[in-house]
Amino acid sequence: LLPSFEIGAWTEDDVYCWVQQLVRKGDSSAEMSVYASLFKENNITGKRLLLLEEEDLKDMGIVSKGHIIHFKSAIEKLTHDYIN
């Protein structure tokens, strides 16, 4: 489970856990499981996660359009939940 809904306070480890949970919950393929490490390697914290754009995801090595859409949708939901 994630430490809190205060996404802005999430550490790199918290984001890593979130990506792992996202991959487990989704209908995503096994190749998506490597993405948790990509987020950690790129020092993505909660604040940075909320700022990620499609180009950032591509720069991190996420090239599948479907996977990018999956992440963007999940990040938008997080942003919405965080604001409300």
Rank of each mutant, 00 (worst) to 15 (best):
K77A: 10
I62H: 04
T11H: 03
H67M: 13
D59F: 07
H80D: 11
Y35L: 04
H67Q: 05
V63E: 10
N43V: 01
E53Y: 01
E41T: 07
D59G: 08
A9W: 07
T11M: 14
R24A: 14
V23N: 06
V23T: 12
A36W: 01
V63G: 06
C17P: 01
H70G: 13
T11E: 12
N84W: 09
G8W: 09
F5R: 14
L78K: 03
T45F: 06
F39R: 01
F39P: 02
I83R: 15
N84V: 10
E31Q: 04
D13L: 03
P3R: 13
L51C: 13
V19G: 00
K25I: 08
R48M: 05
M60H: 07
E76K: 15
L22S: 06
K65S: 10
M32T: 05
H67S: 07
L52D: 04
L1E: 15
I7N: 02
L51P: 00
R24F: 14
Y35V: 04
L22C: 08
V63F: 03
M60T: 06
W10D: 02
S37G: 10
S33F: 06
L51S: 14
H67W: 10
K40C: 00
L52S: 04
L22D: 01
E41N: 05
V19T: 03
M32Y: 12
N43H: 15
A9H: 14
L22Q: 11
I68D: 02
E76W: 07
E54Y: 06
G46Q: 09
F5E: 15
D13F: 02
W10L: 03
H80T: 12
V23R: 11
L51W: 02
M32S: 07
I69R: 14
D27W: 09
R48K: 14
K72C: 06
K58N: 08
T45E: 05
Y82A: 12
E31A: 05
A9E: 15
A9L: 13
I7M: 05
P3K: 14
W18R: 03
N84T: 12
I68S: 01
S4F: 06
D14I: 03
K77T: 08
D27Y: 10
S29G: 11
L49W: 00
K40A: 06
K40L: 06
E54V: 05
T11D: 08
H70T: 15
F5Y: 15
G8L: 13
S28R: 11
T45I: 03
T45Q: 01
E55N: 06
E41G: 04
Y16E: 10
I75W: 01
D56E: 04
L2Q: 07
S4N: 14
L22K: 04
I44F: 01
K72W: 02
G46T: 05
D13N: 05
L1A: 12
V23D: 14
Y82D: 10
S28H: 09
W18M: 03
G8N: 13
T45M: 00
L22T: 09
S37Q: 14
L1N: 15
L2N: 15
Y82K: 10
L38C: 14
S37W: 01
G61Y: 01
L52V: 05
R48F: 00
H70R: 12
L78F: 02
G26T: 10
F39L: 01
L49V: 04
L52R: 03
T11Q: 09
D59E: 14
I75R: 07
I68F: 01
T79S: 13
I75E: 10
K25A: 11
V15L: 03
L78S: 00
K25F: 08
L49E: 08
L52T: 01
E31I: 06
K25Y: 09
I7P: 08
E76N: 11
Y16L: 07
C17I: 10
D56R: 01
F5K: 15
E53I: 00
L2A: 09
A36R: 00
L1P: 09
S4A: 09
F5S: 14
N84G: 12
K25W: 07
A36D: 06
D14F: 10
F39A: 01
S73K: 15
F39N: 01
E6I: 03
K65C: 05
L78A: 03
D56F: 04
S64Q: 14
K58Y: 12
D14G: 03
E76C: 02
C17Y: 11
S64R: 11
E76S: 10
I83W: 13
H70C: 08
S33V: 07
M60W: 07
K72P: 00
I83G: 13
K58Q: 15
L38T: 09
S29N: 10
A9V: 06
S4D: 13
S37E: 12
G61H: 05
R24I: 14
A30L: 08
E55A: 10
L57N: 01
I7S: 04
D59A: 12
G8A: 14
A9Y: 10
K77F: 07
S73T: 13
G26H: 14
D13T: 04
D56Q: 03
T79C: 12
M60K: 03
L52M: 09
G66L: 10
A36N: 02
D81V: 08
N84H: 14
V15H: 06
G26V: 10
A9T: 12
E31H: 09
E31C: 09
W18Q: 00
A74D: 03
G66A: 15
F71V: 04
F5P: 14
T11L: 00
S4G: 12
E31N: 08
S33E: 15
Y16D: 09
H70N: 10
G8C: 10
E6F: 02
S37R: 13
V15G: 02
R48D: 11
H80E: 12
I83A: 15
K40M: 00
Q20I: 01
L51V: 10
L57F: 11
K77W: 03
Q20M: 09
W10I: 01
V15A: 02
F5Q: 13
G66Q: 15
V19H: 00
I7T: 02
I83H: 15
Q20S: 11
Y82M: 10
A9S: 14
I62C: 03
G26I: 15
K25C: 09
N84I: 08
E53P: 04
S73D: 12
I75K: 06
S64A: 09
A30V: 11
R48L: 04
D13I: 00
L1G: 13
S28G: 13
K58G: 02
L49F: 04
A74I: 09
K40T: 00
E6L: 02
E55Q: 10
M32R: 01
Q20K: 11
S4T: 11
T79K: 15
V15Y: 00
M32N: 05
K40Y: 01
K40H: 07
G66M: 11
L57I: 04
H80L: 10
V23E: 13
W10S: 04
G26Q: 11
D13H: 08
D13W: 03
R48V: 02
I83S: 12
W18G: 01
S73V: 07
L57V: 00
H70V: 07
I68G: 04
L52H: 04
L49I: 02
I75H: 00
S64D: 15
K40S: 01
F71Y: 03
L52I: 02
E55D: 08
E55S: 10
S4H: 14
K25P: 12
T11A: 02
N43P: 02
E55P: 07
Y35P: 01
V23A: 15
E54A: 07
P3T: 14
P3Q: 12
K72V: 07
E54G: 03
Y35C: 06
E31G: 07
F71K: 00
S28K: 12
C17S: 13
R24K: 12
L49T: 01
H80P: 06
S64C: 11
S4K: 13
G66N: 15
S4W: 04
H70F: 15
T45P: 01
Q20E: 15
I75G: 02
E76Y: 08
F5A: 15
L78N: 02
V23P: 09
E31K: 07
L49R: 03
I83N: 15
E76G: 06
L57T: 04
L57S: 05
E54R: 04
L57C: 01
L78D: 00
E76L: 03
D56C: 00
Y35T: 05
K72I: 09
S4Y: 09
S29T: 11
Y82N: 12
H67P: 00
H67R: 04
S73H: 15
L51A: 13
C17V: 09
G26D: 12
I69Y: 11
F5I: 13
N42D: 12
A36Y: 01
